[in-house]
Amino acid sequence: MKTFKISNATELWQRETSLPAVASFSQSLDNMLGTEGFQLGCITELLGLPGSGKTQLCLQLCASVQIPKELGGLNAEALYIDTNTNFTISRFREILSASLLKCQSILDKPLQITEEEALNKLHYVNAFGLEKFCAFMYRLSKFITEHPNVRLIAIDSIAFPFKDGISTNQRTGLLFRQMAELQKIAVQHQIAVVLSNEMSTRVGLQGGAVVGSLGDAWAHRCNVRILLSTPHPAQDQRERVALLMKSNVAATSVARFQDQRERVALLMKSNVAATSVARFQVRALS
């Protein structure tokens, strides 16, 4: 007979607050999330049109997971599952060294880590195509037991493997099975999961035709959804706007903004954090 682990909310609260969330280096973004960053054990979905900074944010998070414990970070490793070959190691190196430099300047002493060691803390997987992706997801629990210090899993992007060769029903079934497995691992090992997703068009929808891809059922699955976009008109090429569409924690920012224009007030103003400025800048110019 299987026994079920039933915990009360007090125990869960202690567990949830025992470890810090993965900060993004952008204070306004972290504040908006209500948990000072990307919460461990949760699945966060990043939505946005091409060029809105989804991949950049993923890379940034892979770097910020390494923030040393002295600075309230996790000092942990990251797993990057690349499904659309958007990843470039040179970009990541830039982001990483900028982040580490920032940590150094706050701590006011040199970090005890070389660049090589820091780069070693990123585990990169190129899962191109549905078969490779599924095969890797199947082996994920083994990977996590072998690398217990992984605290962030980034999948960029979740929609890409499912673009072709699978019927809609099968896709939903498979996705939900995979996400259940993924979240089980995330909750047990306290890992933050970040997925990026593309936008798609549905003609005739009341609330606007451009919605996140993978359908309405999928929208229900993730715990936190963030919509990234380039502000209009752009005063600063490097600036990106983040809108919290759904969250299980921060009810306030769901409520705070009256309309789309005021929602923009909740900007992920990149200039707040020196590191993320650079990141967004290069992307915008290239």
Binding site: I6, A9, E16, T35, V187, A251
Partner: peptide
């Protein structure tokens, strides 16, 4: 109350807040 959580959505932090 028994809360059966199937998608990791229960946030004790939120309840506490």
């Amino acid at each position: 109350v028994l809360y059966v959580d199937t998608k990791g959505d229960f946030s004790a932090v939120r309840v506490q807040k």
